[in-house]
Design a protein around this nucleic acid. Structure first.
Length: 564
DNA sequence: TCACCTTTGAAGATC
DNA sequence: GATCTTCAAAGGTGA
């Protein structure tokens, strides 16, 4: 069982070149030998700081990078790093099974099979195992001592060396800053064994009848072939040397995996608030390297093509306020649900005919609740690491900094609005997502993802042994309701909230906390209910329903919009 | 063009 | 301390 609790795995970068997070003492003990990592971090930071300071002009920095023969910047690194880690963790927790998309030349992120250290060609991939062990102790990579292949160096030997595959067509120096978008993972030509013939006409995402076997993490855009970043890749020094050597038994073609992104190291220097410096063009970091968490609104609107040169940007006289608006801001780290959404969105989109994010999000919200505690725990853990990384990268950052980054919503008069006051919302009326959701009912259900089978967090989290909500629980109401007024948060007290400000390192069972007053009071006609919702609830669920007085009176609220 | 929608969670703000 | 507010992603929609 992976270590998900007790701060395990907080030392994401426990090795010579990586950074060790200082908190979470338990894990810290495990890697106490990596104290040097922190020193390295300081060195890296200071060097990066110097680099940043010395290159107030972004242009030289970019030029420097251009000329550098070493791994170049990868604007997608942050996403990939996170996704890689997420997937690795997920796979590990799923039992280590991993269908490696062994497909020569196919731009897939290769995550080593944690239970099978052998590559498809029969050779061991020690670096993969060691890498995972070293980088993510919490992964609890099995059998470290029992490596089948003597070639496999011990972690101490292998240390932190991770193969790097650099691709010529990496990232254009002017690649605009990306966000956490998954778009960068649009697959190219999916391998046949992973992708059936069905491709989403728009996104190209393979529509597989077994989505659970095809993680949205894997596909990479052709431009990102093999450029998988280490989760802490941005901590890596970028001093002209390869971050990681390629061990003899390491990844090799066609395993482009784990390309370490040296460029991300420069992101360390983005700890300096972008407000303190004039953002380089395209939201590139001072070092010229973009960070997904730093977003320039202007760039976001012009994500491609017409890249503005620094000079052009300098020439463009914009009002001071506008300039400030265009200043990139450091985005909030994604929470567990957001991470889940990012992972599952493509899957849901592929399964369904839905494209509207609002509907997708509703489905995802239901799925989220249907996840077992363990499954959710993975995302909570990831989110926690996200926050850790974020705090490491941007020590001075505060969520407050982003207040007002979004345009003011129209709910400013909310204080006067009552829960039943729907008038302040809703441009659209009575948007019914249920019919659409029906379309994706089968596929997901078929692979056991309990699609459309909501369960309250309390149910899902109450007991670790409690299985994920099943279809028998689908009548369980969710918070997918018409939010009558503003945001009714934390209807189901979650560990995070229950424990105050402390983030839920792991979701704690909320067996004692029952959902509060149902939000949705307007029943949905049975005809509009999802068929699965009409199924008899399990005894457990019935009890829950009874307890909450929700049955029928509060169905899923995929009818989201109140009619006025 | 851009806010809105929709979800959950985190965190800051407010009372 | 409890509650409220904002933002994070995403992409269609409508003003």
């Amino acid at each position: 069982m992976p270590q998900l609790n007790g701060g395990g795995g907080d030392d994401l970068g426990a090795n010579d070149e990586m950074i060790s997070f200082k908190d979470e003492g338990e894990q810290e003990e495990k890697i106490s030998e990596n104290v040097s990592a922190e020193r390295d971090l300081d060195d890296v930071k200071s060097s990066l700081v110097n680099e940043s300071e010395s290159s107030s002009d972004s242009e030289p920095s970019v030029s420097k990078r251009r000329g550098a023969p070493e791994p170049v910047a990868d604007s997608e690194s942050y996403d990939k790093a996170r996704d890689y880690f997420s997937e690795a963790l997920r796979r590990q927790q799923d039992g280590g099974f991993f269908k490696s998309p062994h497909y020569p030349g196919y731009p897939f992120l290769m995550i080593p099979d944690l239970t099978n250290p052998y590559l498809p060609n029969g050779s061991l991939s020690p670096s993969a195992r060691t890498y995972l062990q070293m980088k993510w102790p919490l992964l609890d990579v099995p059998g470290s001592a029992g490596l089948k292949d003597s070639r496999t160096p011990t972690p101490g030997h292998l240390s932190n060396k991770v193969p790097v595959v650099q691709h010529a067509h990496h990232v254009h120096p002017l690649t605009p800053l990306i966000t956490y978008s998954n778009e960068h993972f649009s697959p190219g030509t999916p391998p046949s064994h992973l992708s059936p013939e069905i491709l989403d006409p728009k996104t190209g995402i393979p529509r597989t009848p077994h989505p659970s076997e095809l993680s949205p993490y894997y596909p990479l855009s052709p431009g990102a072939v093999g450029s998988i970043a280490h989760p802490l890749g941005w901590f890596m020094p970028q001093q002209g040397q390869h971050m990681y050597s390629i061990p003899p038994g390491g990844f090799r073609h066609p395993y482009p995996a784990l390309a370490m992104n040296a460029s991300m190291s420069s992101l360390v220097s983005s700890r300096f608030s972008p407000h303190m410096v004039t953002p380089p063009p395209h939201s590139l970091h001072q070092t010229g390297i973009p960070h997904p968490a730093i977003v320039s609104p202007a760039i976001k609107q012009e994500p491609s093509g017409d890249n503005i040169s620094p000079t052009m940007q300098a020439k463009s006289p914009a009002p001071h306020k506008k300039e400030e608006d265009k200043k990139p801001h450091i985005k909030k780290p994604l929470n567990a649900f957001m991470l889940y959404m990012k992972e599952m969105r493509a899957k849901v989109v592929a399964e369904c005919t839905l494209k509207e994010s609002a509907a997708i999000n509703q489905i995802l919200g239901r799925r989220w609740h249907s996840l077992s505690r363990e499954e959710q725990a993975k995302y909570y853990e990831l989110a926690r690491k996200e926050r850790q990384l974020h705090s490491q990268l941007y020590p001075g950052w505060s969520a407050r900094d982003n207040y007002g980054k979004r345009k003011k919503r129209k709910r400013e008069n909310k204080p006067d609005s009552k829960p039943e006051d729907f008038s302040i919302r809703s441009k659209k009326q009575c948007v019914q997502y249920l019919p659409s959701e029906k379309m994706c009912d089968s596929p997901a259900s078929s692979h056991g993802s309990m699609l459309d089978s909501p369960a309250t967090p309390s149910a899902a989290l109450a007991s670790p042994a409690a299985p994920a909500a099943t279809h028998s629980e689908q009548a369980q109401p969710l918070s997918l309701t018409t939010k009558p007024e503003g945001r009714v948060h934390h209807r189901f007290p979650l560990p995070g909230k229950a424990s105050g400000s402390k983030p839920p390192s792991i979701p704690v069972g909320t067996s004692g906390s029952q959902p509060t007053t149902p939000i949705l009071t307007r029943p949905i006609p049975f005809t509009s209910l999802h068929p699965s919702m009409l199924s008899s609830p399990s005894p457990f669920h019935q009890a829950a329903l009874h307890t909450h007085h929700l049955f029928q009176s509060q169905p899923l609220s995929l009818v989201t919009k109140p009619t006025e």
